[in-house]
């Protein structure tokens, strides 16, 4: 777990870092999975399709 700490420069409290919990990492991970699927599915259709027609037309 990321430790909680304050950034203090010349007495000025800048940002309070909060702990990221396991649930936060999980939610980012799930989001990355969704994004990856949205990236891969069209890529496979398009590149696969174009490669196929390239072969058919040669």
């Amino acid at each position: 777990m990321i430790q909680v700490f304050y950034l203090n420069i010349k007495g000025l409290n800048l940002i309070h870092f909060t702990d990221m919990k396991r649930v936060d990492f999980e939610i980012i991970g799930k989001k990355i999975i969704v994004g990856t699927i949205l990236f891969l599915v069209p890529l496979v259709i398009l590149v696969g399709g174009l490669t196929l027609i390239n072969q058919l037309l040669k």
């Binding site: 069209p42 259709i45 398009l46 399709g49 174009l50 390239n54 037309l57």
Partner: peptide, 23 residues
Amino acid sequence: SLLIYALPVLAIYLYFRLNSGII
């Protein structure tokens, strides 16, 4: 959506096919 993604691929295929184009 999967069909829509395939549309430009189909269009490109038909273009070459109908014009007897060479890749």
